[in-house]
């Protein structure tokens, strides 16, 4: 098992190198550090000296990949590529273009993101399974038909409308929760309530429709027929046998997204003023803070790959037939 995990992790390294090269090309070859400097120095009294200064402070004044003026290993290490891209591998994110330590910010901001993403995921899972079971139980009746139609309708509404509408209705008209903001500890409850609900509702359409398909597939299998023939009640068949077996694809589907929860939800967070990693990313895009965007791209890739590895592992755990190939 450990050998398998090690091998999977080793597979991830070339992929991360690829990601790294790609982001380096996007951020340094296409956009010159001069341009970044000018964005950040603001409007008034920008001099070429100030631009040089800005670049020097952030280490953007070095050559891109090869330093002629240095000697030995420094020819490769004293370059933008090494400093800004290679060091990401040891999670040294460096400083943002406005001078803050990115690693510190990320560590601080991932908690609010998780505070919303985790409950939304699990409550959503619960709700989706419930609805899907209902539809599967009443399959081929009007409840199932209309349930599916309702799912498709819910799926066809853009997430933006859930957010805008939810905030307008619940916060502005009904005065039930604060419009936006965040607080730590127990106080955070009133702030995360609405984003979590919206997160659940906006995912319920596609989620429960998908789970319904999984359940129906499972119901069509022979062992269910056998169980029913033995005289087990429909409820028992559904809740005990079908649910248990259907949990394998459902849970592995959840495991994939688990690490990515850290990244937060871009729009939800900026709309509700949640200081998480999603709004961090959006702000960085808007402010053209390339250092942060670069760090987030890398972090996102790492988490994505971690998700894939976790999925593989969980497959082997829940389904002994899968070989540790």
């Amino acid at each position: 098992m450990i050998a398998y995990i090690t091998r999977r992790i080793l597979y991830a390294i070339p992929i991360l190198i690829g990601v790294n090269l790609l982001t380096f090309a996007l951020f340094f070859v296409v956009n010159k550090p001069d341009d970044m400097a000018r964005v950040h120095l603001g409007v008034k009294h920008v001099t070429p000296q100030a631009i040089e200064k800005w670049k020097a402070e952030r280490g953007y004044d070095k050559p891109l990949v090869f330093n002629n003026s240095a000697s030995g290993a420094a020819q490769f290490t004293d370059t933008i590529f090494f400093r800004k891209s290679v060091l990401l591998f040891v999670f040294d994110f460096g400083r943002s273009d406005d001078g803050r330590d990115i690693g510190l910010d990320i560590r601080e901001r991932m908690w609010p993101s998780l505070a919303i993403a985790l409950p939304a995921l699990f409550i959503g899972l619960l709700a989706n399974i419930t609805f899907a079971l209902l539809m599967a139980f009443f399959r081929a009746t009007y409840i199932d038909v209309w349930g599916v139609v309702l799912c498709v309708v819910l799926m066809s509404i853009s997430g933006l409308f859930y957010i805008i509408g939810g905030q307008y209705l619940i916060s502005k008209l009904l005065h039930i929760v604060p419009i936006s903001g965040y607080d730590s500890g127990v106080q955070s409850f009133k702030f995360i309530l609405l984003p979590v609900i919206i997160g659940v509702v906006s995912g319920i359409g596609s989620g429960s429709r998908w789970y319904r398909t999984i359940f129906l597939e499972e119901i069509g299998k022979d062992y269910v027929r056998t169980a029913r023939a033995k005289g087990l009640s429909e409820l028992r068949v559904l809740f005990y046998h079908v649910l248990k077996n259907a949990m394998i694809p459902i849970l592995t589907g959840v495991v994939v997204v688990l690490p990515l929860l850290f990244m937060g939800s871009l729009i939800m967070e900026s709309f509700f003023g949640i200081p998480g990693l999603g709004s961090y990313t959006i702000d960085a895009i808007n402010a053209q803070d390339f250092a942060i965007v670069r760090a987030m791209v890398f972090l996102g890739s790492v988490l994505y790959i971690a998700g894939l590895i976790l999925t593989d592992i969980s497959y082997t755990l829940v389904d002994p037939r899968v070989r540790l190939g």
Binding site: Q167, K172, I179, F271, F272, G273
Partner: peptide
């Protein structure tokens, strides 16, 4: 001073 990026929450608050 609280961070308020979007204008709708700001105005409504």
């Amino acid at each position: 001073y609280s961070l308020e990026k979007e204008s709708i929450p700001y105005w409504n608050k």
